[in-house]
Design a protein around this nucleic acid. Structure first.
Length: 228
DNA sequence: AGTTGGATGGTCT
DNA sequence: GACCATCCAACTG
């Protein structure tokens, strides 16, 4: 389980605590487990990169709720993204889970990635077939190396919006144990928010394990993070 | 090794 | 009707 208190305070601290924590789907031998290695913080109404910048809407309502809830939304018409809601109820803030290192349930993650590719029943889909082959041969470390890929690997979609990630009985949840070592953490600017003005564009609110094999493609490309 | 553009649909102006 | 907290294949050099 993951204590809700660790998410109830300021979001930067919560983001750092989520690095190294585990994301879990299901239970038993088929449970999918991974270690969180890259996240981003979106903090308050004043953060002009946040979905909450225009106030409360139907989509972002969960961000205004109590900490520990899952905020799941659809981007670019096809990819789901998972956030962990932080701070006190009433203040919209959340941490986007950008990359996860698979630990257990790897076959299930791969199957889920293939499933997301859609019904490949029809032939003459050479591009789709190529993608399929690629997922089949993808290294384990790359299965959840991006915010859309985390949701694809863990079968997370908007039906999970609002779920309590701190509830041990939830099918999708967070876990942290004493054995989880403290990993080194680097910081950098957030990715994919070119629409945001300064100072929000450059705020060092992306946190990640430097050099980790499961970081997102975007992070691998944008290598300006600095250790802290 | 880096750039570009297509897929695809909900959300907000 | 424009804009996305993305991903990947197909291009260029």
């Amino acid at each position: 389980m993951f204590p809700r208190d660790l998410l109830a305070g300021d979001t930067e601290t919560a983001a750092r605590r989520l690095i190294g924590a585990r994301l879990v789907r299901g239970s038993g031998p088929e449970a999918r487990t991974g270690r969180i290695v890259e996240v981003e913080a979106y903090i308050g109404l004043e953060d002009l990169a946040s979905h909450a910048r225009t106030g409360r809407t139907k989509r972002n309502a969960v961000m205004f709720g109590p900490p520990g809830a899952a905020y799941v939304y659809l981007v670019y018409g096809m990819h789901n993204c998972l956030n962990v809601v932080t701070e006190a109820e009433g203040r919209p803030a959340a941490v986007l889970i950008r990359a996860v290192e698979p630990i257990a349930g790897v076959d299930e993650m791969r199957a889920s990635r293939l499933g997301v590719l859609g019904g490949g029943s029809g032939r003459r889909e050479t591009a789709a077939e190529l993608s399929r082959r690629r997922v089949e041969t993808l290294p384990k470390a790359r299965l959840a190396a991006g915010p859309g890929l985390v949701c694809a690997a863990f079968s997370i979609d908007r039906r999970d919006d609002g779920r309590d990630l701190c509830d041990p009985a939830s099918p999708i949840r967070l876990e942290i144990t004493d054995e989880d070592e403290q990993l080194p953490i680097a910081v950098g600017p957030r990715i994919g928010i070119d629409y945001a003005p300064e100072p929000w564009l450059s705020r060092p609110w992306r946190f990640f394990v430097p050099g980790h094999a499961s970081l997102s493609i975007a992070e691998a490309r944008d290598r300006r993070g600095q250790a802290s």
